[in-house]
């Protein structure tokens, strides 16, 4: 049975290039069946009626698969539920009268665009350095031409689950993009189609990651805890391996 709850929100408000600060708003009569983003929609409607600029937040599919949404809620990326994006976090997990603090995903490499929206294009830049396979296009090949072991295919799919939301960067004590980059490197390193460009890919993606000011991995695994898709630090070990092999000329 759904019910209605009231919450006190402390939300980060900021315009690009200006100093930001937390503002307090009341979220009234929120249906516990609503998602976190729907709660923000309700609050924004009220703010608009009061003549206050609505809270800017990023969203697209609201099905947990696009990677657009995400904020730090009460100190946890995407809120406190494991393997859940913010759009899939429901208000039934909150208590009536609770204080909810909402901060954008923070990292020096993620400058704030407005309020809760941050510029995560750094992740796209890392992808542009090699997160793809340059194959000849044409007719789709016969499905069984390239045999792939089931375990390899599954491990590649696990890595490919990454939606690039940036929670790992925001949760990492060092603002590192190692989990993201490792997932992208892994999904190609595990499949034969990715092998021709393997060495170049890992070197270029790591170089771009460093250039953009993401931090270093200190193996504290906060990233894996924060990941809404359950990307494992096994991928980071694989990224390190790929990097070592690439520099030893073994790929």
């Amino acid at each position: 049975m759904s019910k209605q709850i009231n919450l006190t929100l402390k939300v980060w408000r900021q315009n690009r290039g200006e100093e930001g600060k937390f503002e307090t708003y009341e979220a009234k009569n929120i249906d516990t069946d609503a998602s976190f983003l729907e709660m923000l929609d309700v609050v924004n409607d009220e703010l608009t009626l009061k003549g206050i600029e609505p809270i800017a937040f990023e969203h697209d599919c609201r099905e947990g698969i696009c990677g657009c949404c995400g904020s730090t809620v009460n100190g946890k990326t995407h809120g406190s539920h494991e393997r859940t994006t913010l759009c899939q976090l429901h208000m039934r997990h909150f208590e009536d009268g609770q204080n909810v603090v909402i901060e954008p995903f923070r990292a020096t490499a993620f400058p704030v665009i407005k309020d809760l929206i941050v510029d995560r294009s750094g992740l796209d830049e890392i992808i542009a350095e090699g997160g793809y396979v340059s194959v000849k296009t044409g007719n789709a090949p016969e499905a069984s031409t390239t045999p792939i072991k089931k375990e390899m295919a599954e491990a590649a799919m696990d890595a490919a689950e990454c939606i690039g939301c940036g929670a790992c960067v925001a949760a990492c004590p060092n603002g590192s993009a190692m989990l993201f980059t490792s997932a992208k490197v892994s999904q190609y390193a595990l499949l034969p189609q990715g092998h021709p460009e393997r060495a170049q890919r890992v070197k270029n993606m790591v170089a771009k990651m460093d250039e953009l000011g993401f931090g270093n991995c200190s193996n504290e695994y906060e990233c894996a805890v924060s990941c809404p898709k359950g990307i494992d630090v096994k991928n980071i070990a694989r990224l390190n391996r790929e990097f070592i092999k690439a520099n030893l000329g073994k790929n």
């Binding site: 980060w12 009460n74 901060e103 020096t108 060092n174 504290e220």
Partner: peptide, 18 residues
Amino acid sequence: ANRKAADKRHTLKSSKER
């Protein structure tokens, strides 16, 4: 480099993982 990369966080809490 890590201090510089993870600046200005106000509310982030560490998990028990750390």
